[in-house]
């Protein structure tokens, strides 16, 4: 199918290889981009383990688990779409891609419900942030347990330490946890939105029968991107929702 080969490539094989490698290198930059946030997470979780436990307990594990399953299912659809496109079933590929898109939208919907819950409970970092250990018990799996905050374990010092009760200090550390929660899940959600648009374009092309055994590069490459976004969530889920 020479019609798909750009002027500067010798053949379709070279073009496929270049596109594939290009996406993988782009994903390497994405690993580093999200990885920086994971690095910030690592440093702060090391500094304030109690606050991370407390913050994590207020997240909804059920919603998080459902969302993970939804995203894994969307990844399955994308993998099946690539398989379909590569075996000359362009229409079937379109169907699978639409399935993946629907799952992506469901994920974003559940995420929106969770965000709304955070706003309702004043768990959004900023001037109105509030966090009370006792009142957050409804989500806690292991019920009440005493949280001791050791001021001396906090590097960097705190000039007002003397004026703050341990609860107030914990509240600030939990705000830090939620800052990271919103930065990481927000960035992830942004990637999901981009992915949905990307898959939408590819699904439309697939519906028109653009892909075949000899040319399915866009399906493969946008699929790589989608799977990567899935992998980010695979790490985000236990690190944010499942801290004990």
């Amino acid at each position: 199918m020479t019609g798909h080969v750009a002027h500067h490539f010798d053949d379709a094989e070279q073009q496929f290889h270049a596109a594939n490698l290009g996406m993988w290198i782009f994903l390497a930059t994405e690993v580093m981009f999200f990885g920086s946030l994971f690095a910030a997470y690592t440093a702060y979780r090391y500094m304030f383990p109690e606050a991370f436990v407390a913050g994590s307990h207020s997240l909804d594990v059920v919603m998080g688990t459902i969302n993970t399953a939804v995203l894994l299912l969307s990844s399955l659809f994308v993998a099946l779409a690539v398989n379909a496109a590569a075996t000359n079933r362009s229409r079937a590929a379109a169907g699978f891609l639409v399935g993946a898109i629907v799952m992506g939208v469901v994920f974003l919907g559940i995420k929106a419900v969770e965000y709304a819950d955070k706003f309702a409970h004043n768990h959004v970092p900023g001037a109105h942030f509030q966090f009370h250990r006792e009142s957050e018990g409804e989500h806690a799996v292991d019920g009440e347990h005493h949280v001791s905050v050791n001021e001396s374990a906090i590097p960097g010092g705190d000039f007002q330490a003397g004026h703050n009760s341990p609860d107030r200090t914990l509240e600030k550390r939990v705000e830090l946890f939620f800052s990271l929660y919103f930065a990481m899940t927000g960035l992830h959600a942004l990637h999901m939105v981009i992915g949905v648009v990307l898959l939408g374009i590819v699904a439309y092309q697939a519906w028109r029968g653009a892909y075949s055994q000899t040319y399915f590069t866009p399906v493969e490459v946008s699929g790589l991107y989608w799977h990567f976004v899935d992998i980010v969530w695979v790490f985000l889920f236990p690190l944010l929702y499942l801290i004990r």
Binding site: W24, T29, V31, G35, T42, Y46, A153
Partner: peptide, 28 residues
């Protein structure tokens, strides 16, 4: 190699950054 590159880079970032946090003088 391209698949591994990002993860190797991330391990370098984490390892050297945490080498600082893990060995800072105890604040107390």
């Amino acid at each position: 190699l391209a698949v591994a590159a990002g993860f190797v880079g991330l391990i370098v970032l984490l390892a050297f950054m945490m080498s600082d946090y893990l060995t800072r003088d105890p604040v107390d």
